[in-house]
Design a protein around this nucleic acid. Structure first.
Lengths: 342, 342
DNA sequence: TTGAAAGCGCTAACAG
DNA sequence: CTGTTAGCGCTTTCAA
C-alpha cells in the first residue's frame, strides 16, 4: 500500500512535481511518455502520481495542445426531432462509430441538427474547439452543414455524398447498384409487374436507389415502374402500398427503399389477402433488424452501415493526424440478402 | 455589411479588445452578459466581435470555470460490445437524453462500458473533468461503476436503482407493478396455464418483473409459474419458447420480459401451429418498436423510456447547479398497452 | 462601470 | 536527461 499524500484541492502537476522532487516538465514527460526520462526518475514520478492520485486536467491540456479527444457525431435527421433514433439506421451508425473510436481513445459527442438554430449551434460548437472534427450523417441533399463546417475550417467526413460537389471526404454506398440488385432479383423470379416505394426524393440515396432500379428494369424491357414516394417509416410504406394496390392491383413485385417501408408494405399486402412472396414479392433495403424480424422475413439489399460508419470515423481520424491530406471518398458495395419475401 | 478585421490566427478576446479599444475584461463581460456594461460600449464590443469573427475558446473557458457543458452518457450494456444499439431500448434512452439536453446547451458524449478496461477509462474521463457529470444506464446489478464514480466525486444519475444501496440519484420503473399488470391481463382473459420468459436474472429489472408477475399469480391461486431465463434478444425468446412448449405443451399464456423476446416467442408459437392469442396469449414488456410491428401486434407493458431518460438528465443538471442537493429517486409507473397478442 | 493583473493546469521550446 | 520559462485564452477579484 502506498502512502497517500493529502492536499487541498485536486492534485495538479505541480503537486506531483513537489512530491517527486522534480520539475513540472519532467512529470509532464512521464505522463505523456514523451522524450527520454531517466528510468529511476520515472519510477519516482509514477510513485508520486499514485500517491497524490493525480489525473491530468483535460481543459488545461487541450488549451495548449488544441486537441480535445472528442469528435462530434452530427445527425441531421430528415423530419428532425430526436425520434430519428426509432430508425434503426441511426443506431447502427452510432454503433459503428462508437465501436471504431473507443479503441482510439476518442469519444463522440452526439448532436442533432434538425433546425436552423441547432445547425448554428453545431457550427458554434465546432468553432469553439469543443471537438476536433465532425462526422456528419445527413440524408438531405440540400443540407447546408457540410458547406458551413468546411468554411469554418472544421475537419469533417460525411456519410453520403454532399448534395453539391464539395471538397470534402465522405463514405457512401453505391445505391444505384443496390437498385439494380433488386431489379435483378425480380427478373430472376420472373416478376413482370413490379412497382417501387421510394424514399423521400430530396434524399440522394432515395433517388439513386430508384434510378438504379428503373434503369435495370428498362434494360430488361420494362419502361415504366409505378412509384409512390414514402418517408422511410413503416406507416408510410403501408400507405404507399395501399395506393399501389389501388392503382395497380396486378402488381407482383414491390421494391421498397428501406426495410421499415417494406415491412409496412408486407402488412398491407397480407391484410389484402395477398400471399408474400407467392402473389407479390417484396424486396427491402438496408438489412436492418426489422428485415430479419418481419414475417415473412425480408429479402433485402444489404448496406453495411456499421462498417461504413467505422470507415467514416477512420477517415476523420486520419485527417486529424494529417491536416494536409486531401479529401477522400470511400464507396461500399451493396449485397443481395435472400430471405423469404422474394 | 461590417468591415472584417484580419488577424493571424483565430481571434481571441485580446483581439476583440484591441479592435474595440477596451480591456479583455470588458469584452468577457459582454460575451457572458455578466455585470453591468455601458450600453454604448456593449455596442462597440459586439461590433468588434462580429468584425473579428470571434468565438470563445472552449478549453480556455472551462479551464477557469471548471465546467465543460457536456455530460457522459454511459451505457454499460449487458453482453457488452457496441451491438447494444440493436436493442431499441438504448436508442430510446439516447433519444430521451438528447432531447432534454439539447435545449439546455448541454451535449452528451457517448461511452460504452462493457469491460474493466473501458470502465476504468470512463472513470478516468470523468476525473479529468472531460464532462461535468454522468448518466449511467446499466442493467447489471453488480455494476461497479456507480460506486467508483461516486467515490471519484462525480455527479451521477442512474437509470435503474443500484445493485447495492448507494447514496446516488436514479430514475426507475416500478417493474414489479409491470409484472402484476401482465398477470392481471391473463386473469382477465381467463388464462390459467401461464408461463414466463424472464430476462437475465442478474438484472434487477428482470427479477422484479418476474417477482411481481409471480406474486400476482400466487394471489390468484396459481402457485407455480414455469419460467425460462432469456437474454433480452428475439433469438433467446424463441429458444425459451421452444423449451416451454416442450415441457408444458398446455401453456395458454406467456409473459416475456421484453418485446424482443415476446416477438421471438410469437414466432415459435406460430411455427408450432398455435394461434396467438386464441391458443396462447403473449404479453411483452417495454412497448418499443417491435411491439407494434410484430404480427400479431404485441400487448405489452409500457415503460416510458424516453421520459425516464429525460428525467434522468434533468436530475443531473439540477445536481450540477446545486452540488449540495441530496440524492433523489424518481419512480415511474408502467402501463398496460392492449394490442392483438393478449 | 471599467481596467490591471493574477492565475486556471498544462505543454513545449530552450537552455543547461 | 532535466529544469526554467513562456505562454495557451479566458474569468475574476481587486482597485480605480
Amino acid at each position: 500500500m502506498v502512502k497517500r499524500v493529502m492536499l487541498k484541492g485536486t492534485p495538479t502537476l505541480e503537486d506531483v512535481a513537489r512530491v517527486a522532487g522534480v520539475s513540472r516538465a519532467t512529470v509532464s514527460r512521464v505522463v505523456n511518455g514523451t522524450r527520454n526520462v531517466d528510468p529511476q526518475l520515472q519510477e519516482t514520478v509514477r510513485d508520486a502520481i499514485e500517491r497524490t492520485g493525480y489525473t491530468p486536467n483535460h481543459a488545461a491540456r487541450s488549451l495548449v495542445t488544441r486537441r480535445t479527444g472528442t469528435v462530434a457525431l452530427i445527425i441531421s435527421g430528415a423530419g428532425g426531432g430526436s425520434d430519428v433514433f426509432v430508425d434503426p439506421f441511426f443506431g447502427r451508425v452510432t454503433a459503428g462509430v462508437v465501436d471504431f473510436l473507443r479503441t482510439r481513445g476518442v469519444h463522440p459527442v452526439l448532436m442533432l441538427a434538425d433546425t436552423d438554430r441547432t445547425r448554428a449551434e453545431v457550427v458554434e460548437f465546432l468553432r469553439q474547439g469543443s471537438a476536433d472534427g465532425a462526422l456528419l450523417v445527413t440524408t438531405h441533399a440540400a443540407e447546408s452543414l457540410p458547406d458551413r463546417l468546411l468554411e469554418a475550417g472544421v475537419p469533417v467526413v460525411l456519410y453520403a455524398r454532399p448534395g453539391q460537389p464539395l471538397p470534402v471526404s465522405y463514405v457512401d454506398l453505391d445505391h444505384q447498384a443496390g437498385g439494380r440488385l433488386a431489379a435483378a432479383r425480380f427478373a430472376e423470379i420472373g416478376r413482370t409487374r413490379v412497382a417501387a416505394i421510394s424514399g423521400p426524393l430530396d434524399v440522394l440515396a432515395s433517388q439513386d436507389r430508384l434510378t438504379g432500379f428503373r434503369a435495370a428494369l428498362a434494360r430488361n424491357g420494362f419502361p415504366y415502374v409505378p412509384t409512390v414516394e414514402g418517408g422511410f417509416t413503416a406507416t408510410s410504406g403501408a400507405v404507399a402500398m395501399h395506393r399501389l394496390l389501388a392503382d395497380h392491383p396486378e402488381v407482383d413485385g414491390v421494391f421498397a427503399a428501406n426495410d421499415l417501408m417494406a415491412q409496412g408494405a408486407v402488412d398491407v399486402l397480407l391484410a389484402a389477402g395477398k400471399r408474400v412472396p407467392e402473389d407479390v414479392a417484396v424486396v427491402g433495403f438496408d438489412d436492418s433488424a426489422p428485415a430479419a424480424a418481419c414475417r415473412p422475413s425480408l429479402t433485402t439489399i444489404r448496406q453495411p452501415v456499421e462498417q461504413m460508419a467505422a470507415k467514416m470515423a477512420e477517415v476523420l481520424l486520419t485527417a486529424l493526424d494529417d491536416p494536409e491530406e486531401r479529401p477522400r471518398s470511400v464507396i461500399f458495395e451493396p449485397e443481395l440478402v435472400l430471405r423469404a419475401s422474394a
